[in-house]
């Protein structure tokens, strides 16, 4: 079997300390996987002078000390790593599957979205109603079923501390897509499950935001005070490459899990998983089923 070489990445100097690398202009699982693999290898090399290695959805960024490593040496290294990653026989990633419980259509995001209705495309309904409508789904229930029915890759962590961007693991023709608000809100509840473009996210802190709001999770994902047993010393739960399954929960379950989180006793359901990109490309639904199985067997 012959495969075409992937298009060359685009390297751009961001002044004297940052290198920006665009793997692909459009979002694809392959571009994300390539950026993640290159940055993982770069981290393993532990070259002197590298300060921050930041994978993103279809690009990545490196902060370096130009007094210790030159931009050209860094670019040469990254081109070599890119070729190495492309030449791999098996494109696999050992990662974890995480279940995120979500109270969809909760009272807190509902109150917030009503306050900012003048900034929304469709002031007559809720964000869920709008998302269902523009994705050709009959109602909010159907949208929730689609959102919680397939796994997601954490393709980037950022914007603010610990916020995961998630990319749905389904073929492109089945991707949910929802535009951001017309004008950003000045408020979003903490742990809101949001949506913008082809990405779902979880707001780690209360604050401004432009993504549609669908629900809220009781699961803490950012822990600056160090009280959550499932979050390590980095204070941040998610890592790029994590696989997420959203599980719709009712209000009673939300209240119980929220009480556990407030008492520092919340434990998410997590299982180890070996992801294979080629297997996924051949049969995404089969891989999605495996993800659900490992989680439920756990």
């Amino acid at each position: 079997m012959t495969t075409l070489p992937p298009p060359a990445a685009r390297y751009s100097l961001a002044a004297d300390e940052y290198l920006f690398v665009e793997v692909s202009e459009e979002m694809t699982l392959e571009a994300f996987f390539r950026a993640l693999s290159i940055t993982q290898r770069l981290r393993e090399l532990a070259l002197p002078g590298l300060i921050e290695i930041c994978p993103a959805n279809a690009s990545y960024q490196v902060r370096y000390d130009p007094d210790r490593i030159s931009a050209q040496t860094l670019i040469d290294t990254l081109e070599t790593l890119d070729a190495e990653v492309a030449a791999r026989q098996r494109k696999t990633l050992t990662t974890r599957v995480v279940e995120v419980p979500v109270l969809y259509d909760d009272p807190w995001t509902r109150e917030t979205l009503m306050r900012f209705r003048d900034r929304h495309q469709d002031p007559s309904g809720t964000d869920l109603d709008y998302a269902a409508q523009i994705n050709g789904l009959p109602d909010a229930e159907a949208f929730i079923a689609a959102h919680s029915g397939n796994p997601w890759f954490v393709s980037m962590v950022g914007f603010v501390a610990g916020l995961p961007f998630m990319y749905q693991m389904v073929p492109r023709e089945r991707q949910l897509q929802v535009p951001k608000y017309l004008r950003p809100r000045t408020d979003t509840p903490k742990q809101t499950v949001g949506y913008g473009g082809c990405f779902s996210c979880i707001y780690s802190v209360r604050g401004a935001g432009g993504y549609q709001m669908f629900g809220i999770t009781p699961m803490p994902i950012y822990d600056p005070s160090g009280q959550q047993p499932h979050i390590d010393d980095s204070m941040i739960f998610f890592r790029p490459g994590d696989i997420v399954l959203h599980r719709a929960i009712d209000r009673a379950t939300y209240d119980r899990l929220d009480a556990e989180a407030k008492a520092g006793r919340f434990q998410p359901r997590v299982a180890s998983f070996d992801f294979d990109l080629d297997a996924f490309s051949r049969d995404p639904d089969a891989v999605a089923e495996q993800v659900k199985e490992v989680l439920h067997a756990h």
Binding site: F20, E25, E26, M27, A56, N57, M156, F165, F199
Partner: peptide
């Protein structure tokens, strides 16, 4: 617009921002 970028011509697929950018 590239898939995932958004419709405004100033949009990109969400990426990292360098300090000073």
């Amino acid at each position: 617009p590239p898939f995932g970028a958004g419709n405004d011509p100033s949009n990109i697929v969400d990426a990292c921002y360098p300090i000073g950018s």
